[in-house]
Write a protein that binds this DNA or RNA. Structure first.
Length: 466
RNA sequence: GGCGCGGUAGCAAAGUGGUUAUGCAGCGGAUUGCAAAUCCGUCUACGUCGGUUCGAUUCCGGCCCGCGCCUCCA
């Protein structure tokens, strides 16, 4: 039996995974800033870590999964102001929408979903510790900064040399900083902005401090895995390390995981480039029953450290493939009882997932299993297929319902709805009377409405969405 | 300028120093009243130039091309 190896950004290699406490894993993932719907690129990252959590749990680990919500930030304030609504109304609504999107993607809820505004106290404590250790200072503008050059390990995650960084080349550097790379821990309040009282004066936290404070509260000063999108590596995660290790003087995180981008064409999808689709608009453009899992499959069938291009064709392709799995499960209903995890294909699936979550190989194994199910018509093997898919959050829907889809059937021109079952019955009667012209006419009619008929050996007829 | 990632067949995507990845699409066959589904078979591969090697897509080096981070960003 293989054991899990994970690519660690910190060491830039795959390493055997060894949890701090045997059998337990603490996992922290950087969640959304809640001023707008998440886009499909965000969905990729959250899906990747959902896969990680599910696989760790399938492997027997007790996982504590923490994913934060950033609910205080410049963008949130700007958006609330431009909409003329209270900040809380915006963030609450966005959090609720985020939860809906996650549910559609079949993402497990984190065990803890801390919000920045509820951890101001721990953040201030942490900033206090940093100041007492000489790693933080108050600027002339009353902001509090982290002094990057006073933290020896700065740059170790992203492998940057302080002197090579071009801070301020693209954005003007705040004059109050001693070094252009210093980053803000606490921002002094300006009129009309939300603020909290503190020994540093009224203000609000900088972005990076929340993750250091909340991960420590939820998972301890040192924990197993910290994840996020590739772009968070620098400066966000680098700054988290500086804050946490600067304050606690012990390793912050053992394994850093970063998921690759989702691209539009050959550019990264991002809000600043305005080239994104929201997760919900993509799902809503797909079949209402199949859409969520289809998008999830599209996002996860490639390796999480490889970039992925978002196109309509690839989304369709993913849907076709996924329907193939469900077709097998419809034809051969999974047997009751425990699946045989000692089957060679199960072992290969496990090996693939244990090799840094190699989903392309894992799905290739599932395809072999699907063919085996179709050949042997073995309910036990179908059960294994469903069970293995289930370990990574797939193939749990009712196959019949999935394949029928959420069809809103209309006859085409007139928009009149079609009674599929009545037409199927009429066709059956026509077939019995050997009126094949009528039978074929009905097939054609349904086909143009997006319904495919499948005659079964016993004379029964199944239908599904095209 | 610094740091990093990648270039695999129509499309997508793994992997390996010598033996079929896999999927979608296509094509042929079996099957079907016709279809669909399924099964069987099948066609295009490893950016480029060198090096190491009995042998390289797979290791090493140069080059070309693409992308990312260095600002908020999943």
């Amino acid at each position: 039996m293989s054991s899990l190896a994970i690519y660690n950004t910190l060491t830039r290699r795959k390493e055997p995974f060894v949890p701090l406490v045997p059998g337990k894993v603490g996992l922290y993932v950087c969640g959304p800033t809640v001023y707008d719907f998440i886009h499909v690129g965000n969905a990729r990252t959250f899906s990747v870590f959902d896969l990680v959590v599910r696989w760790l749990r399938s492997s027997g680990y007790a996982v504590t999964y923490v994913r934060n919500i950033t609910d205080v930030d410049d963008k949130i304030m700007d958006r609330a102001r431009s909409r003329g609504e209270p900040i809380e109304a915006l963030t609450e609504r966005t959090v609720a929408a985020f939860a809906e999107d996650c549910a559609r993607l079949n993402l497990l809820a984190p065990d803890s979903e801390p919000r920045a505004t509820r951890y101001i106290g721990p953040m201030l404590e942490l900033i206090g510790v940093l100041e007492s250790k000489g790693l933080a200072y108050r600027g002339a503008n009353a902001d509090v900064y982290f002094s990057v050059r006073d933290f020896p390990g700065y740059g170790k995650l992203s492998r940057r040399n302080l002197d090579d960084l071009r801070a301020g080349e693209r954005v003007a550097v705040e004059a109050a900083k001693r070094d252009p790379l210093d980053f803000v821990l606490w921002k002094a309040a300006k009129p009309g902005e939300p603020s909290w009282p503190s020994v540093f004066g009224a203000g609000r936290p900088g972005w990076h401090i929340e993750c250091s404070a909340m991960s420590c509260r939820e998972l301890g000063e040192t924990f197993d895995i910290h994840g996020g999108g590739w772009d968070l590596q620098f400066p966000h995660h680098e700054n988290e390390i500086a804050q946490s290790e600067g304050a606690h003087e012990k390793p912050f995180v053992n394994v850093w995981m970063h998921s690759a981008f989702l691209n539009m064409g050959d550019e990264k999808m991002s809000k600043s480039l305005c080239n994104f689709f929201t997760t919900r608009e993509v799902i809503e453009s797909l079949d209402p029953v199949q859409g969520g899992e289809q998008l999830r499959f599209f996002l996860l069938r490639g390796h999480y450290r490889s970039e992925l291009a978002f196109t309509r064709e690839l989304l369709e392709d993913a849907g076709n493939t996924l329907r193939g799995f469900y077709t097998a499960l419809r034809e051969v209903p999974p047997g009751e009882g425990e699946a045989d995890r000692s089957h060679p294909l199960a072992a290969r699936f496990r090996d693939a997932m244990n090799d840094d979550f190699d989903t392309p190989v894992a799905f290739a194994v599932l395809h072999e299993l699907r063919a085996e199910v179709n050949r042997t018509r073995s309910p036990a093997l179908a059960g294994l297929l469903k069970a293995l898919g289930g370990t990574i959050g797939f193939l749990q829907a009712d196959p019949e319902a999935f394949l029928k889809g959420g069809v809103s059937i209309d006859a085409g021109k007139g928009g009149a709805t079609i009674d599929v079952d009545a037409l199927v019955a009429e066709r059956a009667a026509a077939k019995r009377a050997r009126d094949f012209a009528r039978a074929d006419a009905i097939r054609a009619q349904l086909d143009s409405a997006g319904i495919v008929l499948e005659d079964k050996p016993g004379g029964a007829t199944e239908w599904r969405k095209k």
